[in-house]
Design a protein around this nucleic acid. Structure first.
Lengths: 110, 110
DNA sequence: ATATATACATAATTTTCTTATGCATATGAC
DNA sequence: GTCATATGCATAAGAAAATTATGTATATAT
C-alpha cells in the first residue's frame, strides 16, 4: 500500500469493491483509480497488486480476459458470482472492523 | 487479532491507546480489556501481544515494571514520553486511514 | 482431582506487504 | 533521434505482523 504501511488486509477489499462498481478493470487502471480517489493517500504498489489479483483469480473470485490496446497488453479482471458474494462479505467485515475500532479508540463517540 | 484476520497493523495502536487511558496495564489485562470493550469482536492472541509489547518496549515507547500478585508474575507496561507522542501519531494515522477507506468504499457518504 | 482462569513466553509458519528488479511499448520534450 | 516519463505486466528477496501450537507455572472453583 505504498506510503501508508498500515492495515494490511484491506487491499483485497479495495480491489473487489472497485470491480463491483466498474464491471471490468485492468491492474494499472486500479492503481490509478485508487490514487485518484484517495487523492494520493493510498498508493498501491505493483508488487502487492499483481500477486493479489493472481490470487483472487486462483480463488475463483475474479475472471481474466486479455486484450491488446495500442499494441500493449492489458488483463481485464471482473468479478465472478462468487466474487460478488465475497465482496459483500469483505465490505461487511470492513464496516464491522471500523465500527469496533472506533468504539475502542474513541469510546465517547460510540 | 484472533477471529478477525483483517487489518493487521492495528494492534500497536490499540495497545498504545489503552495505555494512554489506563496509566499502567499488564498483558493479560489488555487481552481481557479489548475483549470486553469490543464485546468479543477482537480477540488479541498471546502470540501477537507479547512480542508486540516487547518490541514497543525495545523501541522506547513503553516502560516495564515487574510485580508479583497472588504469587503470580505480572509485567506492568506504561507509556514513556516518546510513547505518548507516538500514540497521538498512531491515532491520527488510524483516523486518516478510516477516513480514506470510507471514501473509497462508500464514496457517497464521504 | 480436574478443569478453568490467570500470567508469562517463544518457535514455526503463513499472510501480506515493500523494495528491487526485469521486460516491453507509446508518447512527449528537446 | 534520443531520452525521460507513462503505460502495462511480472516475479524474487526480504520484512512485518499476524496465526497456531506449544511450554511453564500458580490460583480457584467444582
Amino acid at each position: 500500500m505504498g506510503n501508508s504501511k498500515l492495515y494490511k488486509g484491506s487491499l483485497n477489499t479495495i480491489i473487489l469493491k472497485l470491480l463491483s462498481e466498474h464491471d471490468k478493470m485492468y491492474g494499472y487502471e486500479i492503481t490509478q483509480k485508487v490514487k485518484a480517489l484517495t487523492k494520493g493517500e493510498f498508493n498501491i504498489t505493483e508488487g502487492a497488486l499483481y500477486p493479489a489479483l493472481h490470487k483472487l483469480e486462483a480463488e475463483g473470485l475474479l475472471d481474466v480476459e486479455v486484450a491488446k490496446v495500442d499494441n500493449r497488453l492489458r488483463k481485464y479482471y471482473k468479478l465472478t458470482e462468487t466474487g460478488t458474494k465475497e465482496t459483500v462479505n469483505k465490505l461487511s467485515e470492513l464496516a464491522d472492523y471500523i465500527k469496533t475500532m472506533q468504539s475502542l479508540v474513541n469510546p465517547k463517540l460510540a
